[in-house]
Amino acid sequence: MSVYTFLEIDVSLQVEELRGYLKEVGAEISLERSPKGLEDDLHKIIGVCDSCFSTEATEQEIEALLNSIVSVLIVVPVGEKTESLILAFCEKLAKAPSNRLGHVCLRVLNLLFHALSETLGVRYHVYYTMIQVSGQIAQVQSVFHSVDKMRQTLNKAQPPPSTEQMQQLLRLLHQTLLSNKHSDEASKVMIELLGTYTTENASQAREDAHRCIIASLGDPHTYIMDHLLTLKPVKFLEGELIHDLLTIFVAEKLPGYLHFYNNHKEFISSIGLDHEANVRKMRLLTFMQMAESNSEMSFDIIQQELKLSYEEVEGFIIEALKTKLVTARMDQSAEKVYISSVVHRTFGKAQWQALRDTLDNWKTSLALVKESMQAIVNAPLVPAIQ
């Protein structure tokens, strides 16, 4: 990627031009270059570079100024001082005062990120700031595509980001994706975050585990949650109300939730969950569980099990089918639902055994078909009647 400069001149003159421009826009900076060298010059320039944010300068002028700082940064010899300069620059750009300037800062950060060598660890900090800024302007998906791609990119550094750094980044990503209404991706990121903890340090992820469970329970598009119970930080919460509530949403039916709610109404309210939304989700989960063992169900059974009025049954079934978690045909005249397929709420030993039995049956059937076809091939030809 090309790195554009403020003016196509050598670094020394470029630094002087930067000082002059910042002075013109009201920054408190001397026009004289520092006798301590280029790094000190950059330190002073970066310290006041955000002065242009409060001026009447155009986006193009501000972007040109910031890009010029990038072009000087990348020619400074790599070292601790260079990293501190890049960190200071990122800190300034993270505080863009408006959506308009946020877009400018994100482009400049993207330029800096790609201009730095892939082996430099400081790229982690640039990427972290990119996530911060992109979240502020609702552009996070222009920076983050998947956890795997992010890891592949950042792990090229020598050394790669530490576990603690990745946890900090994943935590920021989760918050950013949630605030930008990307709940599915946020859930995946949180699961990835919790997966970085071991049995020894699972207690440190207590708050993250709480947030993960609450976000999953509250997300209207998340229904399958049994995988959360296997995460070590979530296991650490066993015996607490939040873990009991998760277990209900994983394996129990609507009456189980209603019993829990009647005993812990204040707890449900305190964690920010909506009771009516919980009931809607538990009705669907209960319906899924019923469909696992019943190929057909009457409206009466659905009405009784899901605590619905007679008038609400058809509407519920239609909404359930829209989720595509259950495939079924509704017969209004017979007042029955005929189940074709259903997504299992949990996938444990019993489900693996059922899958194995199904595959064994297929294998046996295919073997019989093969034998029949072979018999046809080996059969003697019957002479044609003349």
Rank of each mutant, 00 (worst) to 15 (best):
P159N: 06
A115R: 05
L116E: 03
H210N: 07
D41K: 00
M290W: 03
L193V: 15
T119Y: 14
E28A: 13
S68A: 15
G195P: 00
W362F: 02
Y261I: 09
S187P: 01
S293E: 14
V189G: 02
A215F: 12
S142V: 11
E17R: 14
L355G: 06
E314L: 14
P255N: 07
K370M: 09
A277K: 15
R283S: 01
Y223H: 15
D274V: 13
D274P: 01
E319L: 12
P383G: 08
T176G: 05
K370N: 10
R329G: 03
S117K: 09
Q60A: 09
A64S: 06
F267T: 06
K322C: 02
Q303P: 02
A320R: 00
V313I: 13
K265P: 04
N361V: 03
G272Q: 07
Q139K: 10
T5C: 05
C105P: 06
E39H: 11
Q304S: 07
K363I: 08
Q303V: 08
A379D: 13
S269A: 15
L325V: 10
T129I: 13
G315A: 08
G256M: 04
S98C: 10
F144V: 03
T153H: 08
K370E: 07
L116D: 01
V313T: 07
E296F: 13
E39G: 07
E240V: 00
R151H: 10
V377F: 05
R33G: 10
L245K: 02
L22V: 11
L308A: 02
V377C: 01
S183W: 11
T323L: 03
G315P: 05
S216K: 04
